[in-house]
Simulated scan of single mutants.
Amino acid sequence: MAAWADAADALRVFVKEVKAGQSSFTQTVYAPNGTKPKVSSGRFEFQRPNRFRFSYVKPYVQLIVGDGVKVWFHDPDLNQVTVRRLAEALGSTPAALLASGASLDDDFELKALPDQGGLQWVQATPRQQGGTVLWLKVGFRPGARVPATFEMGDSFGQRSVLSLPDLREESSLPAATFRFTPPAGADISEQ
Rank of each mutant, 00 (worst) to 15 (best):
98 L>A: 07
135 W>H: 10
40 S>V: 01
149 T>I: 12
133 V>L: 03
54 F>I: 12
5 A>P: 13
173 L>I: 02
168 R>W: 02
166 D>P: 03
5 A>E: 15
2 A>H: 13
37 P>M: 04
74 H>Y: 15
38 K>S: 01
80 Q>E: 08
87 A>K: 15
116 Q>P: 06
129 Q>A: 13
95 A>K: 06
24 S>N: 07
180 F>A: 03
121 W>F: 00
165 P>Y: 12
163 S>K: 12
86 L>D: 00
185 G>S: 10
162 L>W: 01
181 T>Y: 04
87 A>C: 08
91 G>Q: 06
36 K>L: 01
88 E>Q: 14
99 A>F: 11
179 R>C: 01
159 R>F: 01
101 G>F: 08
99 A>G: 15
134 L>D: 14
91 G>M: 06
172 S>N: 06
88 E>C: 08
126 P>K: 07
147 P>N: 03
167 L>W: 05
145 R>L: 08
47 Q>R: 06
74 H>K: 04
190 E>T: 13
65 V>S: 10
68 G>P: 11
92 S>Y: 14
9 D>K: 09
36 K>H: 01
60 Y>A: 13
134 L>F: 10
189 S>P: 00
88 E>F: 12
17 E>N: 12
114 P>F: 05
61 V>P: 07
144 A>M: 08
34 G>Q: 01
180 F>G: 06
22 Q>K: 12
189 S>C: 08
183 P>W: 07
138 V>M: 07
49 P>I: 08
98 L>E: 05
1 M>S: 09
166 D>N: 14
102 A>S: 14
146 V>S: 00
111 K>I: 02
125 T>M: 07
100 S>K: 13
132 T>R: 14
99 A>S: 15
155 S>E: 03
57 V>F: 12
190 E>S: 11
11 L>Y: 10
107 D>F: 10
127 R>P: 06
94 P>N: 02
49 P>W: 09
73 F>Q: 08
181 T>M: 08
